[in-house]
Computed example of a mutant assay.
Amino acid sequence: MNENPFLGALEWLSDPARWTGPSGIPLRTAEHLGYTALGVLVAALIAVPVGLYVGHTGRFKGLAVGAAGVARALPTLGLVTLFALLVGIGLTAPLLSFVILAIPSLLAGAYSAVESADPATVDAARAQGMTEWQILTRVELPLGMPLLVGGVRGATVQVVATAMLAAYVGSGGLGRYIFQGLGSQDYPQMIAGSLLVIVLALVLDLALLLLQRATAPRGTAAA
């Protein structure tokens, strides 16, 4: 292995043995993506309906913003450790932490998406006899969809960047390389694992950015 840890990380990544088998990079990447998708999905089932309600009705916005702020301030590693002590080693502890981490971005994206609709357009839809549900789904959501996708984008990047903590409590993912390297002082392996997480986060961010721009109504541009 090269004495330079960064060159050693490139050698580690270029080794064909790293790309096959039950501990290979493809399988660990799939595990990492699975943890990310599951965490964001569960968080979306909680945060998006609440955010849409807050944005459409204007009720409980202060409470929602405050709760999101508190959730952002919570240390993910501390949450993983706490949940591991409460529910045991396995996927449940990090998953609960990922859900809490993803909720603020999803909540903010959902209520911002609805709030961004032009009030005059909403009033015109209401004057035409549309129900509140129709206004939400046919007017407010289509106009604010880029902001909602932006919330999903933010949540996804945050979770994928911290999903390596699943390995901290015995699960898989790309974090396995980082924690195994830490335990054996194999710094090239640690750097290689970190690079894989960074690249995965950048790829997902770019993909969701393109989706965000694609959902922008004609004549507008997504942020």
Rank of each mutant, 00 (worst) to 15 (best):
E3R: 09
N4P: 08
F6A: 13
L7Q: 05
W12E: 05
L13M: 13
D15R: 10
T20W: 01
G21Q: 07
S23H: 08
G24L: 04
I25Y: 06
I25F: 06
E31P: 03
E31K: 01
E31A: 09
H32D: 08
H32C: 10
H32T: 09
G34Y: 02
T36K: 10
T36R: 06
A37T: 14
L38E: 08
V48E: 01
V48S: 00
P49Y: 06
G51D: 03
L52M: 10
V54S: 09
G55M: 05
K61M: 11
L63S: 12
V65D: 14
G66Y: 14
G66I: 14
A68I: 10
L74H: 11
L74Q: 10
L77K: 07
L77V: 15
L77D: 07
V80C: 09
T81E: 09
F83I: 11
F83S: 13
L86A: 15
V87W: 15
V87S: 12
G88C: 12
G88Y: 13
L91F: 09
A93E: 08
L95V: 02
L96V: 09
I100P: 12
P104T: 15
L107N: 11
G109L: 05
G109S: 04
S112T: 10
V114L: 06
E115A: 13
A117N: 10
D118E: 14
P119S: 11
A120E: 15
V122K: 11
A127R: 05
Q128I: 03
G129R: 14
M130L: 15
E132K: 12
W133E: 07
L136E: 04
R138M: 11
E140D: 06
L148N: 00
V149K: 00
G150R: 01
R153D: 02
A155T: 09
T156K: 06
V157S: 02
V157Y: 02
V157D: 02
V160L: 14
T162I: 13
L165M: 13
L165H: 09
G172L: 01
L174C: 05
G175S: 08
Y177R: 04
F179N: 02
Q180N: 15
G181K: 08
S184T: 15
Y187G: 01
Q189W: 07
A192C: 13
L196E: 03
I198D: 03
L202G: 04
L204E: 03
L204A: 04
L204M: 12
L206Q: 07
L209V: 07
L210G: 00
L211N: 00
R213K: 08
A214E: 00
P217G: 05
R218A: 12
T220A: 01
A222R: 00
A222V: 00
